[in-house]
């Protein structure tokens, strides 16, 4: 695929898109793991919500 004389701008745009989307996915995945770990730690200490105690 010939991108012509402005190839750097085109490649730069797609690289920016990949970097930003990858950053969003990584942020969400890391945050998910962190929240799950904190929740599990609290539950392991016996701290649970009333709805969970009732069930």
């Amino acid at each position: 695929m010939n991108l012509g004389p402005h190839a750097a701008f085109i490649v730069g745009s797609y690289a920016a898109a990949i970097a930003i989307v990858a950053g969003l996915i990584a942020w969400i995945a890391i945050d998910h793991r962190a929240q799950k770990r904190r929740l599990e730690t609290l539950e392991a200490r016996g701290v649970t919500r009333r709805s969970e105690r009732a069930s």
Partner: peptide, 16 residues
Amino acid sequence: RNEILRRRVRTLMLMQ
């Protein structure tokens, strides 16, 4: 989903 989990963590920490 993450935000709901974060709020659950906050609630449990307040209860603790």
